[in-house]
Design a protein around this nucleic acid. Structure first.
Lengths: 210, 210
DNA sequence: GTATGTGAATTTCTTCACAGCA
DNA sequence: TGCTGTGAAGAAATTCACATAC
């Protein structure tokens, strides 16, 4: 019931997050219920796709009526593992790291940045959002206490692999990487890349021929 | 020769950027040549996939030898439209906007932030990275001069649709959106979403069952 | 021998279309 | 009637495997 019964397509997982966002918004707008086609319209995802995606995890709708948004939000949250608070280690105290540490969106979804690290002695000891910056060499000691399993890498490309190795060595199992490099990690580690340059290049492709 | 001859799978476009990144790195490490399997190893993408992706655009390799990295970089750059400098309009002068405006990665790939906008009067007139912050209502006037076609949206979710509408109204054709909402835009507008919360939620899914 | 480029096979994902339920 | 859940069909993407070229 908590582990998915069959194999879930990876694109499905990525869409679940979009559905959840939509459901939260509709709830905030005082809707109690919605059909798959209403959610489809708002997310830009096909209605049959939505129903199939949900069907991998259970039957959450009522034929003739649609989905109860409160229940659907709860189901999606549980499916995504968002019913647990997650502690997050942030590596990199540059501009991006600072922006991330004061980004309230994470906290609102149960991700709490509990410590920050950098190798630049000038940054060590300074405050960053709600946390203090440690030297990266203290990572093991700090996380021995915290036991965080999520890491964010916001360092230059040349330092990213070191950061990943350090994080995985202290038990981190999921990493959000902002550095523009392909990282090596053991297969049981989940790494997601948020590469701004790459995104811009993809936009550029679609502007071609002008 | 510049327009793709047949229909290119969207995943191919996204991978081209990864190949390009890898090629640049190998070139910086003094390699002159590489086989598809070497690039595959480094990017984590299957070698046959790489060859097929490239084959949509031409024949860039030499059987028995591999790819000349200098030539491959040039081809990939041209394919992605990176042989042209692109002016970028940034909407949102909060923490993230500030981090983006001082991010050097964009400039190095030919994306130049040429103006920034916000609706907060307290921010208007301040400096942000290399540019000054204008009020969003000046967008049309400013871009009449600049003619930028790329926009970055770094505003709260509630303001993002307004920002997108304003950008598209002044001729922007490609948008990088950091706000956690699904945006409506005409189909000829390319929108790419970089939703940090969503990325975290997806990581969370893979941490489930622990 | 080595490595490319590619048609064919395979796998994966999406969409259709409808039976069944409220 | 209206809408879900889903097997079947269809489309898309990936991988194989090999003829071809250096």
């Amino acid at each position: 019931m908590s582990a998915p019964p069959e194999k879930i397509p990876q694109p499905t997982i990525e869409r679940l997050s979009a559905y959840l966002q939509c459901v939260r918004l509709m709830r905030a707008q005082e809707s109690a219920t919605a059909s798959s086609s209403e959610i489809a319209r708002r997310t830009g995802i096909n209605a049959a796709q939505l129903r199939k995606d949900l069907s991998y995890f259970g039957e959450f709708g009522t034929p003739g009526l649609g989905y109860d948004l409160r229940a659907l939000e709860a189901h999606l949250s549980r499916i995504m593992g968002l019913d647990v608070e997650r502690d997050v280690l942030l590596v990199g105290a540059g501009n991006l790291g600072r922006a991330l540490s004061s980004y309230t969106g994470f906290g609102r979804r149960g991700f709490r940045i509990v410590a920050a690290f950098d190798v630049d002695e000038a940054k060590v000891g300074t405050a960053m959002g709600p946390v203090r910056v440690h030297h990266l060499r203290e990572l093991a000691a700090v996380n021995a206490e915290l036991g965080a399993e999520v890491g964010v890498v916001a360092v230059p490309a040349s330092a990213a692999q070191v950061a990943v190795d350090a994080l995985t060595a202290v038990g981190v199992r999921a990493i959000l990487n902002f550095a523009p490099v392909t990282l090596a990690a053991r297969p049981e580690i989940t790494v997601r890349n948020v590469d701004l340059t790459s995104q811009m290049e993809i936009l550029s492709y679609y502007l071609r021929s002008t």
